[in-house]
Write a protein that binds this DNA or RNA. Structure first.
Lengths: 225, 225
DNA sequence: TCTAAACCAATTTTCACATTGGTTCATGAA
DNA sequence: TTCATGAACCAATGTGAAAATTGGTTTAGA
């Protein structure tokens, strides 16, 4: 029982070092591997269990056995994510994320992008309904993401927006008529765009933070706190 | 031709206002809808084309017709995203995102989470290979995301990490031996964790930014710039 | 010229089947 | 008995083809 038990483990270790696994790090199914290493499936499974305990491999029924650490599962499952979060969490994420978006937008936005954003801000002012206001507000915030010239940041922003819509969706208040003439966002949007146009990243981030804090306050009140 | 043509459009508009569409805003297939509204498929399609021109609905072969604006395609398609980005973009995203993660972690981390992170930092120091070093480095950065107590932020961080691995993957250098004893990250990790433990969000964000700037510099050199 | 039916192509859904890690159990050696 | 061994079985997953669905296009007919 002394080295009869350790021998398969070392055999397996040696195999893993020399084997040319595919890009995904997947190794052959247990039945094949057992035959290739000239051992029973039971003893192979024991050896694999040891390696799994050490975090060197991970396994899943129907998939196979893989080298390395188990990949993160929930990365892109938006539906599952919506169930685990809530409006205040989304707001906190926006407050962490969007000011930095604004900062980078100030550094990288093109002239035509700035024009587009100004057009969105203008449409927000003229929107005859809350629905249309939100449409252009969304476009404005996304345009800032585009202006960063960073596809990854834009994708992350889009993901956050998707979650935000899904979370906010159920409690979508039916507001009366239209945004008031002196709606706080109008001026705050202008401040953000001024800073972006002036290439002042710090001011853009601050203005965005101020804007989102106001939105957060409104959200708090609408949630009844 | 005068109102024979506008009548189907108004009928369709009236339907859209009263119909109880599912959460996805999908409306019945053309054939069903045509029968329900008692009109031919051709005239229904004309009306739908009008609404589509106004941006009120969008359609796709094999999928169906949906209310609202066409959703952003790339929100969660990581594979497509990997093709459109590059290591420097990922680095810029990390620099924008992770300092704010650290700031929120400082505000919300639990004691056991701080202990976990310290354990990761310690394992980084003792790692006998670069591979294991990266393993614990990844765990440390993700633990900071967990410490924000914000499921959405953590999901965004995971997405970014997935993309980062995929992008960096092809240019994975086979470094010799192991991280040097005085590897810059060791002390920088400690600084971040000190700030988090002291509940100093600003210091945590600054320390993270400093850390990532160093990583960025190394990346630049390894890319040959 | 307009309409409705037929047809087309993109997409989703369904289903059967193979694959794979996990579990149970009878067998047999120690 | 006790415990390891291997075969059979189980449930989750992947695969791939066929069928159904759906918006788009063409065509014949009134």
């Amino acid at each position: 029982m002394q080295n009869i038990d350790t021998s398969p483990l070392e055999k397996l270790r040696a195999y893993l070092e020399t084997a040319d696994l595919g890009e995904d790090g997947r190794l052959p199914p247990e039945r094949e591997l057992a035959e290739a290493l000239d051992m029973g499936r039971t003893v192979l499974r024991k050896a694999l269990a040891t390696l799994q305990g050490q975090g060197l491999v991970w396994r899943h029924v129907g998939k196979g056995t893989f080298m390395g650490e188990r990949p993160v599962a929930s990365a892109t499952d938006i539906n599952a994510l919506v169930l685990r979060t809530n409006p205040m969490e989304v707001m906190a994420a926006r407050l962490a994320f969007e000011p930095e978006i604004a900062r980078l937008a100030a550094a990288n936005a093109t002239g035509s992008q700035i024009n587009d954003m100004r057009a969105c801000a203008q449409k927000c002012r003229q929107a005859p309904t809350w629905r249309q206001y939100e449409h252009y507000d969304n476009r404005l915030h996304r345009s800032l993401g585009e202006a960063t010239q960073n596809a990854l940041l834009l994708a992350l922003l889009d993901t956050m927006t998707t979650v935000r819509r899904a979370v906010t969706w159920s409690r979508r208040r039916d507001k009366p008529d239209r945004p008031p003439r002196d709606h706080h966002s109008f001026e705050q949007h202008d401040r953000i765009l001024e800073a972006v146009a002036a290439r002042d990243g710090q001011a853009a981030a601050d203005a965005m933070r101020t804007h989102l804090r106001t939105v957060e306050q409104n959200l708090r009140e609408s949630l009844g706190n």
